[in-house]
């Protein structure tokens, strides 16, 4: 449908993931080049003020070298829609997400968003992916997994670690970016510098200890303390916002149409997110590391 619309001279906004196969995904981008029309993929974080601000900080070097990215998306939902009595043939249409012919399940439906973010932050794309998946929840037969995990490796050795389950939503969704100087939890708009800001009272106490003006305090207790998450709550990346990034995404699409063009990078972000979601699905099926064939590199 996207290619036909482009060939008819229309600009197209298409939700992620772009297509079910690498070949079809590339055909969409080729059609965009051939027609000169706009093709925008629905990755709304590209217009989210929090992500934009964090990207600026990363590029300024404030977070130091990005050592690792980790993301998860945990849900507890049933994808299956009721099929009308006596019309079982509609199952493939209504519940297409459960069929391998149409969907890679959690990879294409959810991981593609976080892959777009990881690729964007790195300014490149992975060189390989290893992945696993299993089926623990679906009560009716499904061809896609409800529980997946993958490690995407970039050319400098950095790993983007992703896991997703549709069995329990306790942890919700998050993207951690770990740099040598700071850490970010983007989905909750939090930023943690490596050195926790010290309050005046604490600073005074530290100074008194360092200058030996305080009495020695005997300390006893356990010899091992669990290395749990620090209590430092961090700061907001931006001071809150009342904008919906999907609205901004749609507004950008309308503005691009009025301009008559859009930057190539707009569609490259969507392309890379889709192809690596497809490759992760293949890796989970085969159990083997998967790389991107050269003809699909973009």
């Amino acid at each position: 449908m996207t290619i036909e619309a482009l060939d008819l001279g229309m600009h197209v906004f298409c939700e992620k993931a772009m297509a079910r196969t690498l070949a079809d995904t590339k055909r969409m981008v080729d059609a965009r080049k051939r027609t000169g029309r706009i093709l925008q993929i629905g990755h709304q974080r590209m217009f989210n003020p929090v992500y934009l601000e964090l990207m600026e900080r990363i590029k300024r070097g404030e977070m130091g070298a990005i050592a690792q990215m980790k993301a998860y998306w945990h849900r507890d939902s049933e994808w299956r829609r009721d099929v009308p009595d006596g019309q079982p043939e509609l199952d493939r249409r209504l519940n297409w997400r459960h069929y391998d012919e149409y969907s890679c399940g959690l990879w294409t439906e959810l991981a593609s968003h976080h892959l777009q973010v990881a690729n964007w932050i790195k300014g490149s794309q992975p060189v390989s992916v290893v992945a696993r998946g299993s089926n623990l929840r679906w009560t009716k037969p499904s061809e896609v997994n409800d529980n997946v995990a993958g490690i995407f490796t970039f050319d400098d050795g950095m790993s983007f670690i992703f896991d997703c389950t549709n069995n329990n939503d306790h942890y919700g969704m998050q993207i951690h970016v770990t740099g040598s100087k700071a850490t970010a939890e983007i989905e909750t708009n939090r930023y943690f510098t490596d050195e926790e800001p010290v309050s005046d009272a604490m600073k005074e106490m530290i100074d008194s200890v360092m200058t030996d003006t305080s009495e020695t305090i005997p300390i006893g207790g356990s010899t091992w303390i669990p290395e749990v998450r620090t209590n430092y709550g961090g700061n907001e990346i931006v001071k809150g916002y009342d904008l919906d990034d999907t609205t901004l995404t749609m507004e950008a699409f309308v503005r691009f149409i009025r301009e008559g063009s859009a930057p190539d990078e707009l569609v490259v972000q969507g392309y890379r997110a889709t192809v690596w979601a497809l490759l992760a699905s293949e890796a989970a099926k085969t159990g083997n590391p998967v790389t991107l064939p050269d003809e699909f590199r973009m």
Partner: peptide, 27 residues
């Protein structure tokens, strides 16, 4: 608080940075 006015101001600031050209030309 980032409202629409602040967002457009943020875009103006980012537009003057090398980051926008390289990493987020779409904004």
């Amino acid at each position: 608080m980032i409202d629409r006015r602040s967002f457009l101001k943020q875009m103006t600031i980012l537009a003057g940075s090398a980051t926008m050209v390289q990493s987020m030309p779409w904004i």
